[in-house]
């Protein structure tokens, strides 16, 4: 009699324990990445994410647009240009003809724009002031802020570049945001990446 009562009791207790255990494992399990991301909406102090101090490269300039986290820096184009300022040659003075081959821009091949109607020099370069680029409406653009010019046609890429889906950060993910400029990766005269051999190869895994 006693034992049957005990077993009857067990029939209730065991499933109950099972349910409690199941519920516990369900709710105590670690939260997923997505829910953690969704919860993280508070602004983070970008200079204090890591303990090490993060320098801003010397050739970085402040961009004249803002990303979702405020101002950011980009790599200067003028510091990479070998013969800037352009106006040191492109002025009213005469150039000696012996030097013409060396200093002309005959090596530049424009593969940019439509195949049938590629871009002309003047589409991007300002005719009146050679130290600047030009918008389609004729206003001047500094070489360092070349993204403003590219973004006239490639507005989708510019939007992604400002946000962070196009282009890349320079060396650091933390600290002040410093990103590569358009011209850091793309040759402005033929912006498409070239076909080439891969840097290395993989062996079969097994």
């Amino acid at each position: 009699m006693n034992t049957s009562k005990f077993t009857k009791c067990l029939y209730y207790i065991l499933p109950g324990l099972l349910i409690i255990f199941f519920a516990y494992t369900c709710f105590s399990s670690q939260e997923g990445v997505i829910s953690r991301i969704k919860k993280a909406t508070l602004k983070v102090d970008k200079t204090k994410q890591v303990d090490t101090a993060i320098p801003i490269p010397k050739n970085a300039v402040k961009a004249n647009v803002q990303y979702q986290g405020g101002t950011f820096y980009t790599i200067s184009r003028k510091s990479e240009m070998k013969r800037y300022k352009c106006s040191s040659c492109h002025n009213n003075k005469k150039v000696l003809i012996q030097n013409a081959a060396d200093i002309s821009h005959a090596d530049i091949k424009v593969v940019h724009g439509d195949k049938d109607s590629p871009l002309a020099c003047n589409t991007c370069h300002n005719q009146d002031n050679r130290d600047f680029l030009t918008t389609s409406k004729g206003s001047k653009i500094d070489f360092d802020h070349v993204y403003d010019m590219c973004g006239q046609c490639h507005f989708r890429q510019k939007k992604d570049w400002i946000g962070g889906a196009h282009g890349k950060r320079v060396t650091y993910w933390a600290g002040e945001r410093v990103v590569e400029n358009c011209t850091s990766c793309h040759d402005p005269h033929s912006p498409r990446f070239k076909k080439r051999w891969p840097a290395t190869y993989s062996v079969p895994l097994n």
């Binding site: 953690r36 602004k43 983070v44 994410q49 990303y67 962070g164 890349k168 950060r169 993910w173």
Partner: peptide, 30 residues
């Protein structure tokens, strides 16, 4: 130390994005 990974730094096409998922302004969150 706050640096991006070696693969991100080496990528010539910018196909790789690395960052802090808990920073709502980071590239990865964008």
């Amino acid at each position: 130390k706050g640096k991006v990974t070696a693969c991100v730094e080496a990528c010539p096409t910018g196909a790789r994005v690395f960052g802090n998922l808990l920073d709502p302004d980071s590239e990865i969150r964008f």
